[in-house]
Write a protein that binds this DNA or RNA. Structure first.
Lengths: 235, 235
DNA sequence: CACTGTGATGACACCAGTGTGACGAGTAAC
DNA sequence: GTTACTCGTCACACTGGTGTCATCACAGTG
């Protein structure tokens, strides 16, 4: 999923620079130079990270920070404060108020992006690679949650491991033997046909409604996770 | 609970300064100047935060950082890198390697402490003094009070620690082993099933009336604090 | 066309994993 | 001492996940 950033900065030139940087990193960007507006925007749609200038119109950045932290839904959103005030006292005040990081101007855009990345790695492990996705399918290994197009799906333990194995190697064909080794464990003595049954259970769980089948059957070879599914119209 | 810090610094004078600062803030401190040793210490008992100098004996700090991040149990421990190398490239390299913050020498001890506090606020919210909340649940670590939708709830000591551990990492699935380590202490020899019983006690305490169950059972994996609860009607 | 092998489907019995209630031991307050 | 409270363990009940089988559907082959 595309990460989103809210930039609160009233210096137009700097705002544009930031916007350009985040955009080219694939962020969806919203920007304002106004403190009040920032609070509204943040509440309206929760960003993944907030870049907050110390000196902005209407309210001071630190006050915005405090207000944001009061909102229960915003407490988990990382805030990076941006300022030309290099005083130690200010930095400490910013951090104590609830900011997660504090960068002084002038700053290196690349370092800023690296710091934002570090923040995101913490708050959204899914962006750090803990969540596996494929064509509308999401599997979060830390929360053990599976979704198809945003809708939660319930899976049994074996189907969960099976799907995870597929998501770790998408599009690739796995023989029944390989699947037994990887999902059941090589010490298990289970019939090969058992794989078929679990593939089916996984299919009915995943393909709710009229969603296209994401599991492709490769005759006399095995199965693969693929957008084509069991579609045969490719001829 | 007393927060713990692992200081990896080979400059004796600086190490002592850091140690003094953390001690006076109530941290339990372990310190080493050796990279290999650092890895051993970290694994032996997981610290709440790691202060890591770039230039240390045996291995470079950045290599230690990379190794730490490879250990699954250390992935959630925040790392603050400390260095005299002010080069932008170095800072970015440090952050990309998995460090959460990067402070250049000379630094202000007070700012360092503020940054550590900010990191802890994220990874161990209860240490930051903040009240933990999740979907109508409140837990105040200072007053040891727990409320559901404003109504006070009485918990035993173990249930309290259990709930706190859940609130520190909401939505995430915790295995019984992990819960025993974190809530009971790894030295304890307690039956795994004991966790079940305490989960149940926590459930009946939390879900007063017809409130939805906030604890999700993940079969053959563990438990998680989640809004879905044990609801299976999500067909 | 019929034949054959492979995969899909539905049913079913089994049992691992979990929920539940009760009990005895330990502990602190009084 | 008593009382109140919490904790760890056990036995039992039960849900639902799991493996197997019989049968059907279908593609490939000659």
């Amino acid at each position: 999923m595309q990460p989103s950033v809210l930039i609160v900065e009233d210096d137009a030139a700097l705002a544009e620079l930031l916007e350009w940087n985040f955009s080219s990193e694939g962020f969806s960007v919203r920007q304002t130079g106004d403190g009040e507006q920032a609070l509204i925007l943040a509440r309206e749609e929760l960003p993944d990270v907030i870049i907050l200038d110390w000196m902005i119109d209407n309210i001071s950045g630190i006050e915005v920070c405090r207000q944001l932290r009061r909102l229960p839904e915003c407490q988990s959103v990382p805030i990076l404060m941006l300022t030309s005030r290099g005083e130690e006292e200010d930095r400490i005040r910013g951090l104590k108020t609830g900011a997660d990081d504090y960068v002084t101007k002038p700053f290196s855009p690349r370092e800023l992006m690296a710091r934002v990345e570090a923040l995101l790695r913490r708050s959204r492990p899914s962006l750090g690679g803990a969540a596996l996705t494929f064509s509308g399918l999401e599997l979060d290994t830390t929360t053990h949650q599976v979704k198809r197009d945003g809708k939660p799906i319930h899976l049994g333990p074996t189907e969960f491991r099976l799907l995870r194995h597929f998501l770790e190697r998408p599009k690739r064909v796995h023989s029944r033997d390989q699947l037994l080794d990887a999902v059941w464990g090589m010490d298990k003595s289970v019939d090969l046909r058992t794989v078929d049954v679990h593939i089916r259970r996984l299919r009915v769980a995943i393909n709710v409604g009229d969603k296209p089948d994401l599991i492709r059957t490769v005759r006399s070879a095995g199965y693969a996770l693929d957008t084509a599914g069991s579609d045969l119209a490719a001829s």
